[in-house]
């Protein structure tokens, strides 16, 4: 058995196809991108090596980079603190919905299936200050004072964007927790009932702790997805007004392509990957310790 499982030839053939694709499509291009990060290349023609200049400028002088980073972190934190509790709550409720369970489960996942182009258009019309649903609803329930230019007001815009991304990504978080709940053995529910636990105690003290491993997976996936998020902003505000909704992915794209600062854009993407890396590693360590082995 052992001999068979450590046969080098077999391992090579198992790992080779995947590695080949990843090396040629991701690792090698990223290597090129790191290389360009040290140059002042504009995308065409000659370029000079500028050493760490790009990186220094991004970290010390680039306000848009810090705005984008803060926005990305805000989105991440909001997703974990708001979207995930709701996802857990709904996945618990849905297990009590009897024969409607399956239908509801499917429906809850639908926003995640539909192309982001469509959902961005939908939300842009909901937020529209002139004919948008949101302002109409506020007015009809006598809360006209709360009416806003939801995407045009730089203080609110990022929150409007956060709502959209949370709604769009809700399906995945929900599905993970739902699957986790379904994995909890029924005996546990029975045992807790016999012990006289009320439903709240049952869930808070027995079931949710059992979801911890799933939570770790879901949180890490969410963190990566949030930090990489760009499509919603790209389609709904273009990072505006005045960069107030800028996110790292969008900023990197704009710099490298629209502003024709390819070298600088690549330096952003290198820093971006480093930031994501640090956050996930720290989070992974922290969650592992907190949750313990299960």
């Amino acid at each position: 058995m052992n001999q068979l499982m450590s046969d080098k030839r077999t391992i090579f053939f198992l790992v080779a196809p995947g590695s080949l694709i990843l090396i040629s499509m991701i690792i090698f291009p990223i290597g090129m991108s790191i290389y360009y990060g040290f140059t002042d290349w504009g995308g065409i023609g000659d370029y000079n090596f500028v050493g760490l200049e790009n990186f220094k400028n991004i970290i010390f002088n680039d306000e848009i980079f810090s705005t984008s980073l803060i926005n990305a972190l805000l989105l991440t934190v909001a997703t974990i603190l708001i979207q995930h509790p709701i996802a857990i709550f709904l996945s618990i409720l849905i297990t009590h919905c009897g024969r409607w369970e399956k239908v509801l489960r499917t429906i809850l996942f639908i926003p995640a299936i539909i192309s982001i182009v469509v959902t961005a258009k939908l939300w842009a019309s909901i937020y529209n200050p002139q004919y948008g649903l949101l302002n109409n609803v506020l007015e009809s329930i006598g809360l006209s004072a709360l009416k806003q230019d939801w995407l045009g007001n730089p203080d609110i815009a990022i929150w409007s964007i956060i709502v959209v991304t949370m709604w769009q990504g809700f399906g995945y978080a929900f599905l993970l927790y739902y699957a986790g709940l379904k994995g909890v053995p029924d005996e546990l529910y029975e045992a807790a009932k016999i012990d006289g636990a009320n439903p709240f105690q049952l869930y808070l003290q027995v079931v949710i702790p059992l979801l911890a491993p799933m939570m770790r997976v879901a949180v890490i996936i969410a963190v990566i997805a949030c930090l990489k998020q760009m499509e919603v902003v790209y389609l709904m505000t273009g990072g505006g007004p005045g960069n107030s909704t800028q996110l790292l992915g969008n900023y990197l794209y704009q710099t490298a392509f629209s502003s024709a600062q390819y070298g600088y854009g690549n330096a952003i993407s290198v820093l971006f990957v480093i930031v994501v890396l640090i956050i996930t590693v720290v989070l992974n360590k922290f969650l592992k310790r907190d949750v313990g082995e299960y």
Binding site: N153, P154, G239, N243, S258, A260, Q261
Partner: peptide, 16 residues
């Protein structure tokens, strides 16, 4: 091209 990006976003910042 960089000037173009900057001047566009400066206008948005002025108006907000």
């Amino acid at each position: 091209p960089e000037f173009k990006e900057t001047i566009m976003s400066l206008h948005q910042e002025l108006f907000t």
